[in-house]
Design a protein around this nucleic acid. Structure first.
Length: 600
RNA sequence: GCAUUGAUGGUCUAGCGGCUAUGACUGUGGCCUUCCAAGCCACCUACCCGGGUUCAAAUCCCGGUCGAUGCACCA
């Protein structure tokens, strides 16, 4: 049983993760979060909000999960989020049709239509590489879930394959909300949907999953980050493109070093790579099992400048991509701008107005109008955009006119109606389409990894077998261990991530202890803590149960509580205890939660 | 989607044509119990779904669903 099986087993038993639709036999690619899983996931999401909304000051929005067709035409998902597949008639293997053609020597096979693919397969006699059978006609498999909006034929709708488009579409509203200034960010946490061909690896590849995405809109020429110094000395394990291509290894370096040496494209990306490191370690990802891998050039979207994935090491699946941090440039805004025929841009004021000398031609339109009637505008425009030398070329000194030819008609424009010269123009700003820096987090993957990294088993020698250390034969000893020693399973979750902060446990079920326990429970609940109360069975069993779902502290009420108004506080990880006054318990526990206090 | 393989209480598991489906752990109630899965008593909970073969199917056959693995796909 590997750690994945152990965690899925624990997750099922203790209400973290359940297969969806189990009652009806289940469906691949869907998971339910049970009560404890829901708490952990929510705590992770709220910590994310803490970083992006509270600290970074970005704006959270909530857009629909169903989108209209225009959105995904613009984003490229309607056309590009599908793959041409080809099925073997004999053995029913599926192949990427474009890959087959590329293997047969065609270049840019990805650009072929389905019809072209069929023709080329036919002509070149391409057969199934598995069994040599004949290939069926190519078809598009689009990874978006389709739906209809409204009754009857309805309007074509799609379940969103990423939350990002919501932020792009609201760009102009968000810009006004930020009072027309860059940079600013918008985020959203929510479900996304991809109709995966074959979901595997449990909760790591889902058809419905939760993303936390942030789109930060920046000035394309200003990719330094004002708060860069906050993270510049964070040391990261980076796996740059060059190292991957030359079979090298990840390298440790500070964010500053990575940006200065050009490994990370710019400060803005570096800042969010470091923030991601901070966030992931804060929620309990093991530092030593976290690295940042740069996308290879062919792996990156064609419009992206640079892209780094946070990868988390898991035992069964190896390095799992959990976060992507990309510079998407102005691709998305331009695409939506073109699709919606609306300008999506920002007017950026220069710190100082810029004065530019420019040669300008000023045709006297008030005179040219009556003279040339319908052609006047065309003539005027032609003159306006001429350089000095061009203008002089058309000058006819004899007749004192500029002789212009438009559609083979000659127009003689009197020179005295055209003035020109150098002018100084004041520019106080310019209109730009912002670039987008996108940190995108896969919350379900992160949640699984947090559980895996928190998972801890220890073997406790049962008290009767303490003499077993005298046995010299190791195999005999291990046999004895498995018989008599017990395994304690602990989720060493960070305090802020654990499903409950503290458990209240009367030592035994005597009425006088139960009464006072309830009072202590109430006082902790009233102070805002998430408290778990349990008075069944024996104390040891309850400790074990709570260890397994990661409750960091247990408050035990015993007979001294009645006499002296004190309780014990037990540490989940060390099992050590301290005594504390019941009066100030809520403050004490809150302080311990906040400081990740360990009783040694 | 293909191939291999599996599916029995919440979990692990025995049974592999034939009585009321085995056991352990968990859970619940009770007794006991002054700090780490203690003990005793009682109880709850299961043959993945649909067809077929048979007097009789958890067991054999076919199809489906879900899981694991490989190929393919995906990030």
């Amino acid at each position: 049983m590997d750690i994945y099986d152990k965690i899925i087993d624990l997750a099922k038993r203790r209400g973290f993760l359940w297969n969806s639709f189990e009652l009806y036999g289940g469906a691949a690619g869907f998971f339910d979060y049970g009560p404890n899983g829901c708490s952990v996931k929510r705590n992770i999401e709220n910590t994310w909000r803490d970083y992006y909304i509270r600290k970074e000051g970005y704006f959270e929005i909530e857009a629909p999960t169903v989108g209209i067709e225009d959105v995904y035409i613009a984003s490229g998902h309607v056309g590009g989020f599908s793959d041409p597949l080809c099925e073997c008639v004999e053995c029913h293997s599926d192949f990427r049709a474009d890959h087959l053609l590329e293997a047969a020597g065609f270049e840019n096979a990805g650009a072929f239509s389905l019809k072209e693919i069929d023709e080329k397969i036919e002509k070149n006699n391409i057969v199934c590489s598995e069994c040599g059978g004949k290939l069926g006609t190519a078809y598009d498999f689009n990874l978006m879930f389709k739906t209809k909006i409204g009754p009857g034929g309805g309007r074509q709708g799609y379940m969103r394959p990423e939350t990002a488009q919501g932020m792009f579409i609201d760009f102009d509203r968000l810009l006004i909300h930020n009072r027309d200034k860059l940079p600013f960010g918008a985020c959203q946490i929510g479900k996304s949907y991809r109709n995966e061909i074959s979901p595997r690896q449990g909760v790591l590849r889902l058809r419905e999953f939760t993303q936390a995405e942030c789109e930060i809109f920046v000035d394309p020429e200003e990719k330094t980050h004002p708060e860069f110094s906050k993270y510049e000395n964070v040391t990261l394990l980076l796996y740059p493109r060059d190292e991957q291509e030359n079979e090298g290894n990840p390298i440790e370096m500070t964010v500053k070093e990575a940006v200065d040496s050009g490994i990370i494209a710019h400060e803005f990306l570096g800042y969010y790579v470091a923030l991601t490191y901070d966030f992931l370690t804060e929620i309990g990802i093991d530092k030593s099992k976290l690295r940042f891998r740069q996308h290879l050039r062919d792996e990156m979207a064609h419009y992206a400048v640079d892209c780094w994935d946070a990868e988390i090491l898991t035992e069964r699946f190896g390095w799992v991509e959990a976060v992507g941090i990309a510079d998407r440039t102005d691709y998305d805004l331009k695409a939506h701008s073109a699709q919606s025929k609306t300008e999506l841009s920002v007017y950026v004021e220069f710190p100082e107005p810029v004065f530019e000398k420019r040669f300008t031609v000023r045709p006297d339109m008030a005179k040219l109008g009556p003279l040339f009637k319908g052609k006047a505008k065309q003539i005027g425009d032609l003159l306006k955009y001429m350089s000095e030398s061009e203008l002089l070329e058309y000058e006819n000194k004899e007749t004192a006119t500029y002789d212009l030819k438009i559609e083979n008609e000659l127009y003689k424009v009197p020179s005295n109606l055209v003035s020109f010269g150098e002018e100084t123009i004041k520019l106080s700003g310019k209109t730009i389409v912002p670039h987008v820096i996108e940190p995108s987090y896969g919350i379900d993957r992160i949640t699984y990894c947090v559980l895996e990294h928190a998972f801890y088993e220890e073997t406790l020698e049962s008290s009767e077998t303490s003499e077993s250390s005298e046995i010299s034969d190791t195999s005999e000893k291990s046999e004895k261990e498995s018989e008599e020693d017990e395994t304690r399973t602990v989720l060493r979750l960070k305090n802020k991530i654990a499903p409950f902060s503290v458990a209240v446990l009367p030592l035994i079920g005597k009425p006088e202890l139960l009464k006072i326990s309830k009072q202590i429970f109430e006082s902790l609940v009233d102070s805002g803590l998430n408290v778990y109360y349990d008075d069944t069975g024996t104390i040891g069993k309850r400790y074990r149960r709570n260890d397994e779902i990661g409750i960091p502290y247990s408050v035990t009420i015993d007979f001294e509580t009645i006499d002296e108004n004190t309780v014990t506080i037990r540490d989940r990880d060390s099992m050590k205890q301290i005594r504390a006054g019941a009066q100030t318990l809520p403050e004490k526990i809150k302080e311990m939660i906040k400081t990740e206090y360990k009783i040694e």
